[in-house]
Design a protein around this nucleic acid. Sequence first.
DNA 1: ATCCCGAGGG
DNA 2: CCCTCTGGAT
Length: 218
Amino acid sequence: MSHRGPEILEALRREYPGVRGTELNYRTPLELLVATILSAQTTDKQVNKITPALFKKYPNVEAYADADPEELQEAISSVNFYRNKARYIQQSAQIILDTYHGKVPDSMEELVKLPGVSRKTANVVLSNIYGREEGVVVDTHVMRLSQRLGLTDHKNRDKIERDLMARFPREEWFALSNLLIAHGRQVCHARNPQCQHCVLRKHCPHYARVVLQKEKGA
DNA sequence: ATCCCGAGGG
DNA sequence: CCCTCTGGAT
């Protein structure tokens, strides 16, 4: 089972040589933290559409902390769960100001204390900004592909992350996250996975099942 | 109708 | 484990 790890990574690297990190647009740690909070159950494209104006209106931590809650909501109203997210961003900003001298913390332990930040968001910030691979970014794509590829039997995010961390060496965690996400977006879709174009077919139990189903149906 | 780089609460 | 939040694209 775990022997497929290196082959999967190698095939994905060949397929997506340009993949480096997040597709979210940002210039500072704070901007990435905010963009990542906004990206929950929302496409990166959708987030990138609103962040230029948002970052201009709220240029620093103080601006978010002092923001009028309704104005902040309005500024992000086109993304999903905007009321929760506005609250998370403002509360996180206040904590960063009070506890971390206005600087976005650079450890998993501190990041996950922020409201709206769990391991997934923390991993995005840590790996993209600070070059730290404390874990694997388990988003909806990584979750789905890990299950289809038989890299995990779990459906819980943290358990899937543990399985991936156990199967791949730490120095591959960042690349693995980004490659699985790229493949999920381009080929291994939630609804109609393009298995005919998939470079991981021969490693994929899900594909084997799909083929079997077809043969039986035909 | 279903999905998108989820998190918090029960 | 489950549910809610909740808008825009497909």
